[in-house]
Design a protein around this nucleic acid. Sequence first.
DNA 1: GACATAACTGTCGGTAGTGACAGGTTTCTA
DNA 2: TAGAAACCTGTCACTACCGACAGTTATGTC
Lengths: 245, 245
Amino acid sequence: MTDQQAFFDLLDIMENEKLVEAKRFFALMRSTFCIANLLYADVDVLATGFAIHWLHHTFSACAARTYLDEGFRRIDPILRLTMGGIRPVDWATARQLHPESEPLFCAAAQLGLGIDGVTLPLPTPTRRLAFLAIHADVPAEQWPAYRRTHLRDFQLLANLFHASVLENDNRIELSEHGAKMLTHRETEVLGWTAAGKSYWEIGTILGISERTVRFFMTNARRKLNVVSNTQAVAQAVRRDLIPTF
Amino acid sequence: MTDQQAFFDLLDIMENEKLVEAKRFFALMRSTFCIANLLYADVDVLATGFAIHWLHHTFSACAARTYLDEGFRRIDPILRLTMGGIRPVDWATARQLHPESEPLFCAAAQLGLGIDGVTLPLPTPTRRLAFLAIHADVPAEQWPAYRRTHLRDFQLLANLFHASVLENDNRIELSEHGAKMLTHRETEVLGWTAAGKSYWEIGTILGISERTVRFFMTNARRKLNVVSNTQAVAQAVRRDLIPTF
DNA sequence: GACATAACTGTCGGTAGTGACAGGTTTCTA
DNA sequence: TAGAAACCTGTCACTACCGACAGTTATGTC
């Protein structure tokens, strides 16, 4: 089987080369398998609005724009299923499970995109979640057999590509580095917030203005590198930064 | 190829059955591939000393005792590499990279265990890390070809088994507290709120409406007898009602 | 004297959270 | 077969939060 040999060649590359560019990986995938399009995204699920760390795809600019403009992200059942588990997500299955997402699939059909594909969740232990979406280029009737044969190939290669991306991601973890100490007032205000007090109440308790309470909370949020008071309190309690009362 | 068919049968089982017991998975793996032993462990990397959540293996009691008694865990280079990345870890490679771990491999040889095997890291987004160690039962000279052929099978099947374990593990959390005050959904929503997510984002993550997220949070607030989400999270973290992430 | 840090205050506009209203389904147990 | 419990959804009115704008004063250290 020459098919087999192509896979093994690709496997050798993915296992032995330190860095494999997305463009190259995608090209190799498309030449090895019957793939129409690929999409790889690395998402920080801790950040607000799912901050995307890393994104590469081979879809047309038109298709990408439609997806974003129509707000399909909000109803995309594939995304939901991908975020919620670690099993491969079949697009057809996702479509069946969420009939409300028909507009998305109709739009995809109009753009000439097939509906046969699979998305592989690629979790990491650091609360980031990546996935590789694979859009097959085979007739619908051949899809089940194609999927069954190549899912294992996709899973392994996706994992190796994901490993390559992570290993070459030089981002510095700011959580430890930027963890400045909180001032007295910041600790105080955080403590009262954890006790369920509103800004106005805390201002009254401490004899300062509501605005100033907000100022301290904003500083605390920045120092803890979080986006909401709730998250700040969760961090502070876990790190034992505020006294229990 | 009957070999192929056996793999596909196993794949069908792993994809379609809700719960696959470790014992059965291991038996199926051993009958499908030339495998001597298997070990699956699910580890909480945040807990002190790597608390093991879930563990199953087919090694002999003697081998397991030797491993523990000799403190091999501390010098086990396979474990290190597994914890530190997401690529498959070859035992031979680990041995080469860490010559100081020779005692471990010598002991393994004395117990009649081969040294050809591979360990697959299986990360989750919740700071837990599992792995499946596969100890091959093929002559050393056949190992490279065997590995190349079946690594993809192992990767996919390991992922599916891991998914099965995770999906069936969520229900036994908090059992130590006896009176489980919060429901599963309430705990889940509280956890995401502590992570700084908005109602809309949580709804997207869990695949439910924003309104329903609000419903769960309202119930959680009432049960915890607090007035704000922030206070609820503070209480929940202090009482260890939500997992740390 | 320049600089850094902590404490403090005001306004505006937008988004997120909150309570109270009123429904629904599924699943399990008495 | 009734009822409880968990899960799920919608709308309205109101309040709280949050980022970005633009400041002041006091206390230190180099």
